[in-house]
Amino acid sequence: MKKLINDTADVVSEALVGIGAAHADLLRVDLDKKTIMRADGPIQGKVALISGGGSGHEPMHGGYVGMGMLDAACAGEVFTSPTPDQMEAATKAVDGGAGVLHIVKNYTGDVMNFEMGAELCQAEGIAVEAVVINDDVAVQDSLYTAGRRGVGTTVLAEKLCGAAAERGDDLQAVANLCRKVNDQGRSMGMALTSCTVPAAGKPTFELGPNEMEIGIGIHGEPGRERMELKSAREIVAMMSEAILSDLPFESGDQVIALVNGMGGTPLIELYLIYNELNQICQARGITIARQLVGNYITSLEMAGFSITLLRADEEMLVLWDAPVHTPALRWGV
């Protein structure tokens, strides 16, 4: 294993100290509870938003803490859910009296840990709503799986709901918006290479030099199919077909598009992917009204990318354009 670390046991804490030091104007870090919080919180009367999950997906979630997005992010060990005591502490720390929304990605561990954290807070009379994001079309949503995983739509939901909370929407309204974003967002990812969890010391899975995994999860969970590497055009066609036919997206739709790098893919390739995606959308009469291209929800050093499309109405576009000031997303300020 070749990594820029000191001790595998300290990776998460040392990175947390680093993000706190680099963004001291925006963030406050509680090292004991491995939680990143807005420096100016809690904000009285504003619905607070919390997310969290395993580390290794940076900038998600800590990079999205700040004005117009999250109030706190709880960090777990690499690829391992944070624990209920973290969510409890974060919820209490950010509650400004208007209630707290938990944005949870659909993984068994995350869901159960957030659930226990919410139960602890609700027992003390704090209003907590939880919305589970499950947008990964690579997984069949059936009784026979843990359900679709939460991936790229999470970032878009954090931005849009953060803007709604900033505008003064109440807890129910922000939670409903989050559910709507989840209902209308779809994603799929792929990998060219595996990644190595520092504590594990070796790659999570093996891919041959000429192989790729379509439908990969952000923790290296296997996807739909392992196949021979194809051209970017063919890969994007395959993935966007799976995404577009799932909702389905239709001619006349406006979308927010996220072309996301998994951590080990250069931007030049991501822009090339965006070009392919843009052409496919145009050919289908779908307008990409807003877009993000870059590393937003990563999987350590994995090479690969994911596509997220969110069918957006005018209100979502207004919320998208609203000011945001976080380490990883910043505009309008």
Partner: peptide, 13 residues
């Protein structure tokens, strides 16, 4: 509950 994380943390907890 506060140290295991994952799915097994809440379950064994």
């Amino acid at each position: 509950i506060s140290t295991v994380g994952g799915a097994s943390g809440p379950l064994y907890g």
